[in-house]
Design a protein around this nucleic acid. Sequence first.
DNA 1: GCCTGGTCTCTACCC
DNA 2: ACGGGTAGAGACCAGGCG
Length: 796
Amino acid sequence: MSEPRTITFWLLDASYDVVGNVPEIRLWGLTEDNQRVVILDRSFRPYFYVLPEENVSPENLLRRLKAEAHGKRPILDMTIVDKKFFGRPVKAIKVTCQVPADVPEYRELFRRVVGVQDVLEADIRFYMRYIIDHQLRPCSWHEVKVKPTTKHKNWQVDAVYEALEPPKPIEDYSKLPDLRTLAFDIECYNPRGSPKPERDPIIIISVVTNKGEKRLLTAKDHNDVLLIKEFVDFIKEFDPDIIVGYNTNRFDWPYLIERSRYLGISLSVSRTGSSPAPSVYGHYSIMGRANVDLYDFIEEMTEIKVKTLENVADYLGIMPKDKRILIEGTEIYKYWDDASRRKNLLEYALQDALSTYGIAEKILPFAMQLSSLVGLTLDQVGAASVGFRVEWYLMREAFLQNELIPNRIERPYVPYKGAIVLKPKKGIHENIAVLDFSSMYPNIMINKNISPDTYVPPEEIDDPSKYNIAPEVGHAFRKEPPGFYKRVITKLLEFRKRIRENMKQYRPDSIEYRILDERQRAVKIIANACYGYAGWVGARWYRREVAEATTAWGRETIKQTIKLAKELGLEVIYSDTDSVFVKYDKNKVEKFIKAVKEKFGLEIKPDKVYVRVFFTEAKKRYCGLLPDGRIDVVGLEAVRGDWAEIAKEVQEKILEIILKEGSVDRAVEYVRKVIENLKSGKVPLEKIIIWKSLSKDLREYEVRAAHVTAAKRLLEAGYRLEVGDKVGYVIIKGPGRLADRAWPYILLKDRKMIDYNYYIERQILPAALRILRYFGITENLILSGKRQTTLFDFFG
DNA sequence: GCCTGGTCTCTACCC
DNA sequence: ACGGGTAGAGACCAGGCG
């Protein structure tokens, strides 16, 4: 039984601990035959690099470092190694320590030694070091030679193995193991505003699993001791691989942890029996399982404006709002205390867990592919910001290419010029094609070899023919050899091509197809984020000249493209960054595409053709009618989250009437009707709520803004608000500034308080006139109610 | 003291 | 804690008016 064997496993989580002065890597996973396993590797040691100053001999420095370390904690090894730093070959001293805690100690000690230029790679967590060095991929399959061990008998796994050699990744991403997923949500008793764990019990924990279980765990009146124990027991019994929730990192887990501590209950939900623990990027780590907060992913979906669980579930078609029970957060305790209403609360809680589970089904396949690609574990990848996701990917690549990973350093923010936006030709245009460059910035970075390691400062320029010189800004980049960004982005684009090739062997409705599709999406997202990353001052591979040159070439490209279009007789209506809107002429457009390819080595593709498109004179705001009758609204009030629904609706309807029917009269009639309805109180309250986000702490605001005063009123009423939350308010009648008349809709006692005049003058009319004034309509004309002539009607 | 115009702050958008 | 470019509303404030 204890003979060595090779097993195949899917990597779920990674961690480490020091056991008997030996660091032990733990790889948590699932095997092909559906066993939960942990693989221990005690052979790996932490290390970092010391980079000598240019004129310092590595041998001398090595001796000095050894002398410096003498008498301190033993260092396992110090060796001079050949590495590259920003593409340049360098000698570095690799320092291998006994345990991870030695690394920061020696980093601090060595960085002060004379002759040391820098200490590198001393800030990488030990298990991440392991993942990078062996190129493991979380959420992917690996092969590993192991032998069983009797260690850690009390852990909740089917088997514990010792690795006889490091695992090897398997390059097939089309399959997933049979995972156990658990979604949960907690409800707290909150008669005194926001619940506090040292005061208010948890009353319901709703649980839904992917194996068809639905549980409603409840408190005994106001005693939640058994409830929490039941929850812990259920997790142990079901033994989930993935635990999902909505906003669990900021609410459920901290609350459960605090509450358990207060009650003296052990929240041992992990596979080692430990409690969830706060970890990197503000997420909670549950040993051996992946704790995923779906909110992290929803946060990035800017198309969902108000990100409450019920809104998101509604938006994603998981649980339509009109088909579920909605209970106001502040009312929960009332339902709990009222025997006749308690069952409604229970149903509500279950629907929350079901919604959460539904979101997980939509999000997890992508999250897993992102995790696999960038190398962050599933529970971390969502919590990490875009910049860090890109960075982890780059760090893996740097390792493969023997490049030293630069340190994260603080730098001043220096702004630079971005893209060009053309002033549109205002009014209505017919038959307009939109063409845009595919991945313009990534391709420019490849074509011009733009990278920190190919950048050459002006004083070092010799023969200009050896460099690509950026227009306007004059930054120079070596043509050869290929720079870091070029190598990385090229690889990503090729990778994506290969995945898309691979997809062809599967039916579009198959699981394999879905997985690969999510994977190619993840690859595209990372490739496209490289430019932004390069211009981020917090990036390890930051260089302003890189970002600045990329946009400069982008500007030149689009300028030349516009010129080319005109030369070919295409009328250019508008352009933004990497797109051109031209009067559609099939032959000319085909010629144009070919010419662009020849001239710039970049691909421009027709994205869509508008039957009709309307532009105001403002940039970034227009509206187009598509051949299938759909309407694209871009930038205008109708698509902004900070206008009252009623105003957005009016604008959208006007655009539709104008683009489809060409009748200004009807549009004006429509606006008048809505104003009538509003005055007579026929418009539902939801449609006049204005939602705005809090971008900072309330005390930090410099001017009195409406949503801030509304937020303060919410706070006084006992609501809890955080940065990023959306505040919904209405404007009420009365004296003073607008900001002082903003009232949280939730606290509104009487609809009579609402200032309808504000909604007419400052919401509906501006939104309507934004469009209608281009057709000769004025505010007075709408308000006077005079019948219009058909003067402004057109086409039919 | 009120009005006006310019500037600043703030949000959310586009690509 | 990935980039810059942009519109538009409202707050704020200085200056003009008389």
